[in-house]
Amino acid sequence: MEAYAVQAVHGVVYGMLLFLVTSGLTLVFGMMGVLNMAHAAFYMVGAYFTYSLVQWTGSFWLCLLLAPIGVGIIGAFVERALLRKVHTFGHAHELMLTFGIFYILAEVVKWIWGTYPLTVVAPDVLNGSVPFLSATYPTYRLFILLVSVIVLFILAFIMQKTRIGIIVRAAVFDNEMVDILGVNVQLVFLGVFSIGSALAGLAGVVAAPFLSTYPGMGLEILVDAFVVIVIGGFGSVWGALLAALMIGELQSFGIMLIPELALVFQFLLMAIVLVWRPQGLFGESA
């Protein structure tokens, strides 16, 4: 019985990390209608920033603040200088552009930091373990859980309770109308994209000590993040949360029950959901 409880907790932790990685993606898609392929690169840049910042300042805690800001600034630049230019060309162009940026950033990271894996050490207070059932549980995994839950609440609050959320959703629906009402739509889009990028950066910071920092980390997370978005329904925070947790638990228990299929768990789940609900669990019908 205890083995199952431990696996369940593993699943929740990994699921929440996955949610953290996809949260910015969900935000940007939900509010701007842009599927940001560069998100995975922002996540990777966040992790590499953490490496360098820890080298310079010696403080991991500072990275939690500075790295997301740094990535957010890159995001702002991408939105202002590049993405806005192709907005009128339609979805395919936005997608291709963000993919191109992903491709370039992945190369730039290799250029600056080299190809071999870099070590980020978490602060001592996070490196220990806490008693859990008859054994112990690593503190860092609980820290991942904590950060993800905080992000979840902030995100849900912004999207559903504040004026910004209402404005942005209105702007997606009718750009001109919101403009006439005296809201600077361009600025709002800029803000949303930066925050989305910063969230990717934050995920990178949290993942750096846990998953290690190496050039392939962006591409490897990209597919997982997309599967979460497809299952959860595009742009739905709660959908992403549910999908991420489902994938986390599926991997934890799946390897105990049907390890042969571990490679395709998420794709099978995706296929099943799509046959049943093409728009995803929480998506509005396309």
């Binding site: 898609f29 209608g33 842009v34 599927l35 979805h91 395919a92 997608l95 597919v223 997309f226 599967v227 978005i229 497809v230 595009f234 395709v264 794709f267 995706m270 296929a271 799509l274 093409p278 396309a286």
Partner: peptide, 18 residues
Amino acid sequence: VRLGGSYFALLTLAFNQL
């Protein structure tokens, strides 16, 4: 093909992975 835009892009990617 029933889905357009970004949905299509993601689905083709996911099926490629499968």
